[in-house]
Design a protein around this nucleic acid. Structure first.
Length: 485
RNA sequence: GGCCCCGUCGUCUAGUGGCCUAGGACUCUGGCUUCUCAAGCCAGCUACGCGGGUUCGAAUCCCGUCGGGGCUACCA
């Protein structure tokens, strides 16, 4: 018999921008599906309508696309098990919750929020495991009549039978939960809307999900999901394989949040991080290919990824390492590719308007900045001098240019460059070395430093001679003159 | 509090009883190179949480302990 097709799903609840933790999960889900030749399902868990917005849903879709994590079933592409937005599957959940009640797996619970709160307080005071008492499991006709006359609307609560749940987590090994500590749980709110506890399990069964790779925060909800599977008539052997991924933590060892580092993928995109760099870095958080290999392509990730090599311990997110990998990826790009990726940033930062002519200039400048930027956004500051209309030296640098020695350098430079007919970086360098180093007897960093500031406006720039060649003779000369008092 | 998960350099990791006086990467420090900044090259710092076992031998197995984290919702 052929192996059953692997089907994994990424099922975020978009209550905000997707963050690095979500994406790490999505990446592993995707990589596992692709590695096994299975299907990658993208499902939106928007049952909490108080917190999920359309804006966040669309952002999540865009983010996955941008990262290249293409899905086989889900929003936009559809599929045989749709719809893939839980808010469009309400009738399905209703059908199952009704059935669970009819079959005795679940029951109506009329306890009010206040009563439940009081119960918890009492349990806490008595140092007992908190949880629903099961009071409404067998509700008396009198109580029922009273609740109804009071106008109380019931929730649907799942009955958690005595016993234990044991399963082999693909990452953590055998995990056991005693149902003593797993109280009856709510499936449907009093307003009739389904909860995650119901929807996630129903959909995983209906969508034939075979492997669930998700965050470890969901580990302790596994026995509840299993109970829903049973209520749906599934036997243990057909339950999906569970694999609980370790957390991605902030540098301060707290769960990643705005406070301890930027977490939204959109933030990294705006800053000029490459999707393949983000994926490569995130893949290294909780997983590694071994053999001291780190820099891998998406294809290699697919080829090498196995759940067996995923860790069970949490990882800290390190921006420095991400930057290093981003720089490595940038250096690997072709000039054309890097140009295409830089142009949008230059436009955004008003360095260029985007004309074909400007883009040609950018393309010719890309080789000299490729090894000195770690993010695409850094290109703006680096290339600004080539496009700026009203050139001015940085206020910080200006005073140094007025010193006598700098003035001598500028004058000499102007003198030897003006007659130059072959305006290329080799000629420029030869002439300047001869005039400033041999002629004026200056050290290179002193001499070229002044020219650099006068021509590019900053003491940090791409290589000087190449920069001047790119700038052109006319503008270079103008700027030198501008620097001379 | 209860239940559960986790514990190798500052960080990510390699490591599944001898190849480990613990390897790689990032960071940091120093040096080389150099027209600045980078990149590159070389060197250095720094780790098996602690305590018991098991074994000829433990980072690797067992127990305890300490520490960190998650869950404990009509959130997911």
């Amino acid at each position: 018999m052929p192996n059953k097709e692997v089907r994994v799903r990424f099922a975020p609840s978009p209550t905000g921008d997707l963050h690095v933790g979500n994406i790490r999960t999505a990446l592993f889900d995707w990589a596992y599906a692709r590695h096994t030749g299975g299907k990658f399902i993208f499902r939106i868990e928007d049952t909490d309508r108080e917190r999920v917005t359309d804006e966040y849903i669309n952002a999540a879709i865009e983010t996955l696309k941008w990262l290249g994590l293409n899905w086989d079933e889900g929003p936009e592409v559809g599929g045989p098990n749709g719809p893939y937005l839980q808010s469009q599957r309400l009738d399905i959940y209703k059908k199952f919750s009704d059935q669970f009640i009819a079959d005795g797996f679940a029951y109506h619970c009329y306890c009010s929020a206040e009563e439940l709160e009081a119960e918890r307080e009492k349990q806490k005071a008595a140092n007992v495991a908190p949880g629903y008492s099961g009071k409404c499991r067998n509700i008396s006709p009198e109580d029922l009549a009273r609740y109804k006359s009071e106008g109380r609307k019931p929730v649907v609560r799942m009955r958690m039978p005595d016993g234990i749940t044991t399963f082999k987590d693909a990452i953590r090994g055998e995990v056991t939960f005693d149902h003593k500590f797993v109280p009856d749980f709510v499936l449907v709110r009093a307003d009739g809307s389904p909860l995650y506890t119901l929807a996630v399990a129903v959909d995983d069964v209906l969508m034939n999900v075979t492997h669930i790779l998700r965050g470890e925060d969901l580990l302790s909800s596994t026995p509840r999901q299993f109970q829903v599977y049973r209520a749906m008539g599934k036997v243990e052997a057909d339950f999906p394989v569970m694999a609980h991924l370790p957390f991605v933590m902030g540098t301060d060892n707290a769960k990643l949040s705005k406070r301890n580092g930027e977490v939204s993928i959109a933030w990294y995109r705006e800053r000029g991080f490459l999707p393949e760099a983000i994926c490569n870095y995130l893949a290294l958080l909780g997983w590694s290919p071994g053999d001291d290999v780190e820099n891998i392509t998406m294809d290699q990730l697919v080829e090498l990824f196995t759940v067996e090599r995923v860790h069970s311990s949490p990882a800290r997110f390190d921006m420095k390492k991400l930057e290093a990998i981003n720089g490595d990826k940038i250096r690997l790009l072709t000039v054309d590719d890097l140009t295409d990726r830089i142009v949008p940033f230059l436009k955004r930062d008003n360095v260029i308007t985007g004309s074909a002519q400007e883009i040609e200039v950018v393309k010719s400048a890309v080789p000299i900045i490729q090894e000195r930027i770690a993010t695409l956004a850094e290109a703006s500051a680096m290339l600004k001098f080539l496009f700026v209309k009203n050139f001015e030296v940085d206020a910080q640098e200006a005073p140094k240019l007025k010193e006598a020695q700098a003035q001598d350098v500028l004058k000499k430079t102007l003198e030897v460059l003006e007659p130059l007919t072959n305006w290329n970086h080799i000629e420029i360098e030869a002439v300047l070395r001869s005039a400033l180093l041999d002629g004026l007897g200056l050290k290179p960093r002193i001499a070229f430093g002044s020219v650099r500031v006068a021509v590019t406006g900053s003491h940090i720039s791409p290589p000087l001679f190449e920069s001047m060649a790119l700038l052109g003779k006319e503008r270079s000369i103008t700027r030198l003159k501008q620097g001379i008092l």
